[in-house]
């Protein structure tokens, strides 16, 4: 009996170790406030990538399928992988519709290899576009 129990224990440990290694880790619950941005233009700084000045380009990039992020007030870039029930994240009309808006979202944060990925479970506040940058930066990147 003792032998059987110890054999079962070994099996159980082996099972949970293996399944643990493959199961996706749970995200961390977070609330993020910030501006919806195009990940590529904002991070690379190949042009001025925030607010009204960059809105049109941010729409181009989102429809072109570049990942969209929330630039948090904490300075972090959160790549949005899901918004509420919609599990698509390439040229998602829901996300494009709130491009450049200042939002507060609840979500699950997954950090992996230097990237913060956000699964938005709820958009709790949407202030619309409030970052007026066009007076200073015009229309990025071509001026029209």
């Amino acid at each position: 009996m003792k032998k059987l129990l110890s054999a079962l224990t070994v099996l159980a440990v082996a099972f949970f170790t293996v399944s643990g290694a493959h199961a996706a880790a749970a995200g961390k619950r977070v609330t993020v406030t910030g501006e919806i941005v195009d990940t590529w233009c904002y991070v690379t700084e190949i042009m001025y990538g925030l607010g009204t000045a960059h809105h049109q380009c941010a729409v181009w990039c989102a429809i072109g399928g570049i990942p969209v992020s929330v630039l948090g007030e904490d300075g972090n870039v959160y790549v949005v992988l899901k918004v509420e029930e919609d599990g698509t994240n390439v040229a998602n009309p829901r996300i494009i519709n709130i491009q450049t808006h200042k939002v507060t979202v609840d979500g699950d944060l997954y950090e992996r290899d230097g990237v913060k990925y956000l699964i938005v479970t709820q958009v709790v506040d949407d202030k619309g576009i409030v970052n007026l940058t066009h007076e200073e930066y015009g229309i990025q990147p071509f001026g029209k």
């Binding site: 996706a24 995200g27 790549v79 599990g87 994240n89 390439v90």
Partner: peptide
């Protein structure tokens, strides 16, 4: 990869 929510064919172009 992160959450285990896996549609067919990696989302057929609708997933990053």
């Amino acid at each position: 990869e992160l959450t285990g929510d896996c549609p067919a064919d990696c989302g057929s172009g609708k997933r990053q």
